[in-house]
Design a protein around this nucleic acid. Structure first.
Length: 327
DNA sequence: AGTTCCCGCCAACGT
DNA sequence: ACGTTGGCGGGAACT
């Protein structure tokens, strides 16, 4: 994937004099200038920013290169992006265990070697967090840590897919509602528009995350959705959660988000953000956690019907709206 | 007019 | 102090 993919057609080839209407000889330097000017006459590809992630993964592919060190500053330079943007990418990748923070400015790149195992663990954690139920408004949202939010958000976003039947469609709005704990223990009641801004902000984060996930082939954007105007995503990654057993349509039970649900959260159930050092949030490595054999004994078949999927999403939307109304 | 995402301020943390 | 990370939201760029 190269960034000039955007150029839909190659400009017709012609001699310099044809475009510059100058026929006299010019020095190489002047020639260069001319070329630059000429180049500017043609449609330029958009300042490849969306492709930052692709560029990065081009440099550090998921497979093929072993374990290598990544220097943030030099990588940023070679990608032609500011360093700040490197964090956006690497934090998400780190949350997927593709890289570990080694020391200042340095990450160790593992690529996708640990991905499968990690996905299994994420699924486990997603179950511990009862995300399936949270999705349907039947369980309290897990508390969100205050640090490493991008990484945690990324992990939990992925958990949603892993915990649900395969091919479940998830949209960002819904994910944010589910994943972001809006309860602030300090009665600093956020105004409606504050909540609004916060929500939008989180959706922005999720866009970044989703794009990285797309880049590493974990999810796909499902376009042409006629029912919901917002984009929905589906999991297409390596480790298939489970065979879709009969897509069940969640009961649209409007529930009171936080009132009904008093949290009997157990910290033990979410090792994701264990560790209390403010910044130092290690994401649990599969090596340290005891072996988790996932007993997915879900044989069923019934290849999920597209409409069932859509219904499910629509239903979740409904639930979401219901919840929203009662905020 | 809404969706998607770029960009950079600046705070929180580390040294 | 000063450098490194990264939360966060305005608003540009795209539909």
């Amino acid at each position: 994937m190269y960034e000039d993919d955007n150029i839909t057609c190659t400009p017709k080839r012609c001699v310099l004099t044809e475009v510059t209407n100058s026929s006299s000889y010019v020095s190489p330097n002047a020639n260069l200038k001319l070329l630059t000017n000429v180049a500017l006459q043609y449609p330029t590809p958009p300042p490849s920013a969306v492709q930052r992630k692709e560029k990065f993964l081009n440099l550090y592919p998921l497979h093929g290169i072993g374990t290598v060190e990544i220097q943030l500053d030099t990588t940023a330079a070679s990608l032609g992006v500011e360093k700040r943007r490197m964090y956006d990418i690497i934090n998400i990748l780190e949350a997927m265990q593709c890289a570990v923070h080694k020391r200042k400015n340095t990450y160790l790149w593992h690529g996708g070697s640990r991905l499968n195992g990690f996905l299994k663990m994420l699924k486990k954690q997603g179950e511990s967090l009862r995300l399936s139920e949270v999705l349907r408004g039947r369980a309290p949202k897990p508390p969100t840590p205050k640090h490493k939010t991008l990484g945690v958000l990324a992990q939990r976003f992925l958990m949603l897919f892993l915990v649900e039947p395969h091919n479940t469609l998830i949209n960002l709005e819904m994910a944010v509602r589910v994943l972001i704990d809006t309860s602030n223990k300090y009665k600093t009641v956020l105004s409606v528009e504050q909540q609004e801004r916060q929500h939008k902000s989180k959706v922005r984060r999720l866009y970044d995350i989703a794009n990285v996930f797309i880049s590493i082939g974990l999810i796909e954007k499902v376009s042409g959705n006629l029912i919901l105007k917002k984009p929905v995503f589906k999991y297409v990654g390596p480790y298939k959660p489970k065979k879709a057993d009969k897509v069940m349509v969640a009961t649209p039970s409007p529930i009171t988000p936080l009132a009904v649900l008093d949290s009997q959260q157990r910290a033990s159930s979410c090792p994701v953000y264990a560790g209390k050092s403010k910044r130092k949030l290690e994401f649990t490595t599969p090596t340290t956690s005891r072996e988790l054999k996932l007993g997915i004994s879900t044989p069923p078949h019934t290849p999920s019907h597209k409409w069932d999927e859509i219904l499910l999403v629509a239903d979740m939307e409904l639930t979401r709206i219901n919840n929203g109304v009662m905020l």
